[in-house]
Amino acid sequence: MIPPLHFRWDGDALVPLRPILADRHYVVGETYSIVEHHDRSANSHRHYFAALGNAWSNLPDRMLEEFPTAEVLRKKLLIRAGYADERSIVCASKAEAQRVAAFVKPMDDYAIVTVREAVVRVYTAQSQSVKAMGAKAFQESKTKVLEALDDLLGVERGATARSEAA
């Protein structure tokens, strides 16, 4: 796999900033497709986690059992916002499904485990790491999580994001 390489447009050609690396991975005369990449904003990342932390520290006491830490809050809201991986287990009976759910739940403190009839569904939050999620997907997930947090708290959409912006 070719590592990300940076190029500068000089008006005529894309010139590699590290020619030795470009020579190592590209062949002179070959044609390559280019896709623009935008690095994630460190400020956006810090804002997101600060807003989540601030909101968590101000949660009503009745919500602390469901969201005992800011990390649990973030991951569960990621799942609710649709940034989740789902695994389903079909059991032989409703009773077996209840037993399987009880067995699976302690394996991941952040997972949401549901049972419907004889089917157990396990939802786990997708990673928001820089490696797992690019700038656009991170920004979309950040917006959806903060909106879900606003809905959970019963405040105007955007209030959580603004509270940390000041």
Score class of each variant (00 low, 15 high):
residue 115 V to P: 00
residue 98 Q to L: 15
residue 65 E to R: 14
residue 63 M to K: 07
residue 95 A to N: 14
residue 75 K to Q: 10
residue 55 A to Q: 04
residue 52 L to W: 03
residue 101 A to E: 08
residue 81 A to D: 00
residue 35 V to Q: 13
residue 55 A to M: 03
residue 35 V to F: 12
residue 61 D to R: 07
residue 46 R to D: 14
residue 46 R to W: 09
residue 115 V to H: 00
residue 69 T to H: 07
residue 62 R to P: 00
residue 52 L to F: 01
residue 43 N to K: 14
residue 30 E to V: 06
residue 82 G to K: 05
residue 90 V to I: 15
residue 47 H to S: 12
residue 39 D to V: 12
residue 77 L to Y: 01
residue 120 V to H: 06
residue 114 T to G: 07
residue 86 E to W: 10
residue 67 F to L: 03
residue 49 F to I: 10
residue 89 I to S: 10
residue 106 P to S: 07
residue 71 E to V: 09
residue 40 R to L: 02
residue 85 D to M: 12
residue 106 P to Y: 05
residue 117 E to N: 15
residue 109 D to F: 03
residue 103 F to C: 04
residue 53 G to D: 12
residue 66 E to L: 09
residue 110 Y to C: 01
residue 32 Y to E: 09
residue 77 L to M: 04
residue 111 A to Y: 08
residue 61 D to N: 04
residue 55 A to E: 05
residue 119 V to M: 08
residue 40 R to T: 09
residue 30 E to H: 15
residue 115 V to Q: 03
residue 67 F to K: 06
residue 50 A to P: 00
residue 43 N to S: 13
residue 117 E to M: 08
residue 50 A to D: 08
residue 113 V to Y: 05
residue 50 A to G: 02
residue 115 V to I: 08
residue 72 V to H: 13
residue 99 R to E: 14
residue 88 S to Y: 01
residue 60 P to W: 01
residue 66 E to N: 00
residue 120 V to R: 04
residue 50 A to F: 07
residue 118 A to T: 10
residue 44 S to T: 05
residue 50 A to L: 10
residue 51 A to I: 04
residue 73 L to T: 06
residue 32 Y to W: 14
residue 44 S to V: 08
residue 107 M to S: 11
residue 108 D to V: 06
residue 115 V to W: 05
residue 42 A to D: 14
residue 68 P to S: 01
residue 42 A to C: 02
residue 101 A to Q: 11
residue 66 E to R: 14
residue 82 G to N: 05
residue 92 A to V: 13
residue 102 A to G: 11
residue 34 I to S: 11
residue 52 L to N: 01
